[in-house]
Simulated scan of single mutants.
Amino acid sequence: MPGSLLPVAEGSRPVTARLSKGAGVPGGGPDVLGLGLHVGPGGGLGGPWDLALSSSGIGTATRCLPLPATGWGRARYGSLLPYRVGRRLVWLLAVPHGEPLAPASLGLLEQRVRDRPWRLALLAGPGSGRWRPVAALVLHTVLPVSEAGRVSFDPVLNRPPEWTPAPGWLTRARESAYRGSRRGRRAPERG
């Protein structure tokens, strides 16, 4: 997108997405829904970029709160914390297009994506003010479990260098948590 806030070149590129339920509520019960995105290196990025988004509010006071959602298409998936880009703070938000996709069942969502693509708009916004569209996401392929299990997401290591998660004290806590996660899955310390 011309004049985009994102540090990637214009055009289409493959992205891997992982959808999850935060509390693991069985079936289609309401839960904090997660959307992880992995953008591979190239196209303006030095390395990969992993985004961790959760169902959240979209207002100035609620965008940092993970909120349960009753359906995949009803949720708004926010970064919960901003990135510091230069002298400004930038929040990210993915908003689904089309029908509401209820209930919040991973199995039903997988079947829906097998039948037809699921489209979302990726928006960026300041701490207060309007959200701007910066990218379109189209989820259209479900990976086999054997392949999906090999994809790991690490938003602490895998990010553009000029995009620093904020605030600093919480970023340090997240870094410690992800370091433990990498040890647990025996992943390298560099993305």
Score class of each variant (00 low, 15 high):
Leu80Tyr: 08
Ser146Tyr: 10
Thr171Ala: 15
Ser79Pro: 08
Ala136Cys: 09
Trp118Lys: 00
Gly11Arg: 11
Arg84Asp: 09
Tyr178Arg: 12
Ala135Asp: 03
Arg84Val: 11
Thr62Cys: 03
Val25Gln: 14
Leu19Asn: 02
Trp118Met: 08
Leu37Ile: 00
Ala104Leu: 10
Arg116Trp: 10
Thr141Tyr: 04
Ala61Gly: 07
Tyr83Asn: 05
Ser12Arg: 12
Pro82Ser: 14
Gly34Phe: 01
Gly29Lys: 10
Ser4Tyr: 04
Leu120Gly: 01
Gly28His: 12
Pro165Gly: 11
Ala52Asp: 07
Asp31Tyr: 03
Gly43Ser: 05
Pro100Gln: 10
Tyr83Ile: 04
Leu109Phe: 11
Val138Gly: 06
Val39Glu: 02
Thr70Asp: 14
Leu89Thr: 09
Pro167Gln: 13
Trp72Gly: 00
Pro165Arg: 15
Gly59Thr: 13
Leu45Gly: 01
Pro160Asn: 07
Pro68Tyr: 11
Pro68Ile: 10
Arg159Tyr: 05
Leu80Gly: 05
Arg179Pro: 00
Arg179His: 06
Leu109Pro: 02
His38Tyr: 11
Gly149Trp: 05
Gly191Ser: 15
Leu67His: 06
Gly71Phe: 05
Leu143Ile: 07
Leu120Val: 04
Leu170Cys: 11
Leu53Arg: 02
Gly42Ser: 11
Leu92Gln: 01
Leu80Val: 09
Pro14Cys: 10
Val90Met: 13
